[in-house]
Design a binder for these strands. Structure first.
Lengths: 338, 338
DNA sequence: ATTAAAAATGTAATAGATTACATTTTGGTA
DNA sequence: TACCAAAATGTAATCTATTACATTTTTAAT
């Protein structure tokens, strides 16, 4: 395993020159550059990034913490993050908490030991917040940005990119109300406390505004999976008075919901309307195509990464969250009550 | 930013002792251990992993290269990889090539510069193979394992975990043939050359075996996305003699296919049967539920990571690919020809 | 040709944890 | 108490690329 030293010897230059070859090649004379190029080829040298990172005190790695890699919406956000990261010369390291079920010790350790130049949290992670609050200063951890998730008070100091979850949820609920629905169920995604809280607030707000009773029996805690959408829907269908519409905190639960409704012999939207959140790519081709609130996932990812870069570069970033627009996409899973 | 040196001074011990505190704590006397613990708390020390990695010559990072993070099947594999990686103390760094559309320079660089202790390729990546073949010896890159993908000749030296794609595809085709289908279309996933090749071979093998003509018009190149499944299906439906069954190289294309068939006024499976590959979680709840070949994604991930660990630890691993079982899951998107 | 300024290159210190080897301490036994 | 082996701890070299600072070379103007 050859080092700069050997390359330098082979090329007849100093190690500093070899280093400059990689970092500020324009400083070298053509002739010198050629000598180094040849020496590298001859020795088969390849840089030891560990040494470089150590010496420079940075890794060019951004850690993204994500509740689950399998959720299509997060996939979109990641795509946006990656596009910008690549532009800026960062690599992405993804930590999947598998919906908070994984032990956080190692992850926490990562944060406080220079392993990342920046951290993106997609969602809020209680164990992580604990660790953060234990460390008062921000000296011993890299810059952090929390996207998709509204900042709960304890992490409100971090910048954030997201949609306005409350008004998005209000819009979804009002869409159902405008179609004449009154018994509207809500399936939350309890795993992401903040978002879910805001969305539930938006739902309640809309109900109140239109003077509709919110029946607590119609409000359930889901975990954002298809399976949970199905489970909860089965429960709702067995209710004495079943809902005429179901608002789900994400599309996957909505798809599970539709499946169970149809499976029980009822029709969507004729008997029950269903509306989701995120506009994942399966929403358009579901049967019936799913009405949903679209989040601009890639845009969220890009803006998040841009902001993080700014912070890393030391540019002042205002701490107000960046709100990107959501959009109600009306397809065929919602209809007027008969 | 405190270092071992300061902790050592604070604790009244040597830097070696502090280092041992982290690496071989059982070597320290209780009293000493306590002194160090206190000193760490007092100084707010946290280890500089950059220095550690550099000194040790390893990162505890495994790089996983993946065609697209959004593909559910890869999500399953990743989950398996992560489970084992965590057990073994490795972090996962994911590189998403976005279906080979991303520039590979940086990625290639990653491989040859000690940034990873091991590399998992999920699928085969031509630009990467180029880089590999340029470097004769394996001295200057970490161990590599290629999973999901059958090893094309140029990378056949790497260990691999996967299903037997050819016979899986044969099984899928024979399922359709046993239902009386003769005009069977195949939509490939040209992006993963190896897999796609094997699956196409399996399809052709089954057709031949049962003395059925393979019509080249019925064989198309897809890119594994819903969108492409839809595009190609529209073409197939406009054919003079349209197929009575469609075999897709993955479930996402199959779902797109079903959507377009239904959209054109035909019924699945009454008019056209559709069968997919992977058994992603949306397959079960599609309408109709999708017949498909299940791959044990998590198992593939786990076995891959175990093997990689063995190689990293220097244990001899036999180079024959590890074949895991596939399973034909018959749901309702396939039926006898009328 | 001379010289000052600019450009190119060289020298050597440096980052912080680890570890081979050296030294000291401990615990148990004669 | 003295002594030995084993356990604990200390000393200092080491890993490799970068970079501040020093020195040499080149360029261009007189």
């Amino acid at each position: 395993m050859s080092s700069v030293k050997e390359v330098a010897k082979e090329a007849g230059v100093s190690t500093a020159t070899v280093s400059r070859y990689f970092n500020t090649p324009e400083q070298l004379r053509d002739k010198t550059r050629k000598k180094v190029t040849d020496a590298i080829k001859k020795t088969g040298y390849s840089m030891n990034s560990l040494a470089r990172n150590f010496r420079r005190g940075k890794t060019n790695v951004i850690v993204v913490v994500i509740p689950s890699i399998g959720v299509p919406h997060f996939g979109d956000v990641l795509k946006g993050i990656e596009t910008v990261a690549r532009q800026k010369g960062f690599s992405i390291m993804i930590i999947d908490t598998q919906f908070n079920t994984m032990p956080f010790d190692k992850m926490t350790n990562t944060f406080f030991s220079n392993q990342a130049d920046g951290i993106i949290l997609l969602g809020s992670f209680s164990p992580f917040k604990d660790a953060l609050s234990r460390s008062k200063s921000s000296d011993n951890h890299p810059p952090i940005i929390v996207s998709c998730e509204n900042a709960t008070p304890d992490i409100s100091d971090f910048p954030s990119v997201r949609i306005d979850n409350e008004s998005a949820s209000t819009a979804a609920t009002e869409h159902l109300i405008s179609l004449g629905h009154q018994r509207i169920a809500y399936i939350s995604g309890s795993l992401s406390t903040g978002v879910s809280g805001e969305r539930e607030a938006g739902y309640r707000l809309a109900m109140e505004k239109h003077k509709l009773k919110t029946v607590e029996d119609l409000i359930s805690d889901g975990n954002l999976t298809i399976e949970d959408g199905r489970r909860i829907t089965r429960r709702l269908l067995n209710l004495h008075q079943r809902p005429t519409a179901i608002l789900c905190a994400n599309d996957e639960m909505a798809l599970g919901s539709i499946y169970e409704i149809k499976n029980s012999g009822l029709r969507v939207p004729d008997d029950i309307s269903v509306i989701g959140f995120d506009n994942i790519r399966y929403a358009e081709i579901s049967d019936p195509p799913l009405t949903t609130i679209a989040q601009p996932g890639e845009e969220i990812g890009e803006k998040t990464m841009y902001q993080l870069c700014h912070i890393i570069e030391g540019v002042e970033v205002n701490s107000a969250p960046t709100i990107v627009p959501h959009q109600l996409i009306i397809r065929s899973s919602t209809a007027s009550i008969k």
